[in-house]
C-alpha cells in the first residue's frame, strides 16, 4: 500500500511536470480560461449577479477544469502509447489504477489553477461580485467535486487505454459534456430526451453542488440533497470503474496492443 501511494504521489508530480512542458497544455491552462470566461460573460452580461456567478464564473471555470481533465484521460494515455511507456507503466508492480489516478489528479490540480485564474480574471477585469460562502462547506464541496470528476475521468481513461483513437474520442466528448452537463445553462432547458443522459453524468451533479453551496438562497435540505446525489453518483462510478478496470486489465493483455499507436 505504501509503495502504491508513493507511486501515486510521484505520478502526480511527474504528470504536472510533463503536462505543463507541452505548449498546447499551457494554452489550455493559461489562455483558454480567459476565452471561456469572456465569451460566457458577454452571453450572460445583462443577468443578475447570482446568475452571472452561477453560469459565468462557475460555468466557464468548469469548462477549463473539464478540458484539462479530458486531456489527462485521453491524450495522456495516447501520449504514453506514443512514448512507448504505456506498456512499462501497465506491467509495473504498482497497480495501473494508481498511475492513472495520479495522472488525473495531476491534471485536475492544473485544472483548478486554470479555474482560479478564470475566477480572478472575472473578479478584477469585469468587477463581478462573488458570494460569501462558508469555507468549510465550499472546501468539502470542492473535495467531493474533485473525487467525482476524477472517478469519472478514471473510467474514461481506462476505456481510452484500449483505443488507438483516444484523441478522436476526446475531441468528440469535450464539447458535448459542456452542453449536456449544463455548465453554461440549466439542464432543464435541454430537450427532454437528453436529460436522462445529463442525470447519469457526474459533472452535471458536480457543478450543481457548487451552484447550490454558493447560492445564498439554498436551504440545508437542498445542500444536503446536492451532496448526496453527487456522492451516490460517484459511488456508482466507483463500482463501474472497478468492473471496467478488471475488464480492461484482462483485455489489454488479451489484445497485446498497448504498444501500438
Amino acid at each position: 500500500m505504501r509503495g502504491n501511494l508513493q507511486a501515486f504521489f510521484k505520478t502526480i508530480i511527474v504528470q504536472m511536470k510533463l503536462s505543463i512542458a507541452r505548449p498546447m497544455f499551457q494554452f489550455v491552462i493559461w489562455v483558454s480560461p480567459f476565452f471561456y470566461a469572456t465569451i460566457t460573460y458577454f452571453v450572460y452580461g445583462g443577468q443578475s449577479p447570482e446568475r452571472i456567478f452561477q453560469y459565468v464564473v462557475l460555468g466557464s471555470g468548469f469548462m477549463g477544469l473539464w478540458t484539462s481533465i479530458v486531456y489527462s484521460s485521453a491524450t495522456d494515455i495516447n501520449r504514453e502509447r506514443y512514448y512507448g511507456t504505456l506498456e512499462n507503466i501497465f506491467v509495473a508492480p504498482v497497480s495501473f489504477a494508481y498511475i492513472i489516478m495520479g495522472k488525473i489528479v495531476g491534471n485536475t490540480i492544473w485544472g483548478f489553477i486554470s479555474m482560479l485564474l478564470s475566477f480572478i480574471y472575472l473578479r478584477f477585469v469585469f468587477n463581478l461580485e462573488y458570494p460569501i460562502v462558508e469555507p468549510l462547506l465550499i472546501g468539502l464541496a470542492l473535495l467531493i467535486v474533485v473525487i467525482a470528476i476524477s472517478v469519472f475521468a478514471f473510467v474514461m481513461a481506462l476505456v481510452f487505454t484500449l483505443s488507438k483513437q483516444a484523441e478522436v474520442l476526446m475531441n468528440f466528448i469535450e464539447y458535448p459534456i459542456f452542453l449536456i452537463c449544463g455548465f453554461l445553462f440549466p439542464i432543464a432547458i435541454l430537450p427532454t430526451c437528453l436529460q436522462p443522459l445529463s442525470a447519469i453524468l457526474p459533472p452535471t451533479w458536480a457543478i450543481n453542488l457548487l451552484r447550490v453551496v454558493t447560492n445564498d438562497a439554498s436551504t440545508t435540505a437542498q445542500i444536503l440533497q446536492a451532496f448526496l446525489i453527487l456522492l451516490a453518483t460517484t459511488l456508482i462510478y466507483v463500482g463501474i470503474s472497478v468492473v471496467v478496470y478488471m475488464a480492461v486489465d484482462r483485455k489489454a493483455r488479451m489484445d497485446g496492443k498497448l504498444g501500438v499507436y
Partner: peptide, 17 residues
C-alpha cells in the same frame, strides 16, 4: 523524453516500489 535521466529512473523506481 521531457524528464531528465535521473527523474526517469526515480519515477520508474517508484513504480517498482
Amino acid at each position: 523524453w521531457r524528464l531528465s535521466a535521473y527523474d526517469n529512473l526515480a519515477y520508474f523506481a517508484d513504480l517498482y516500489k
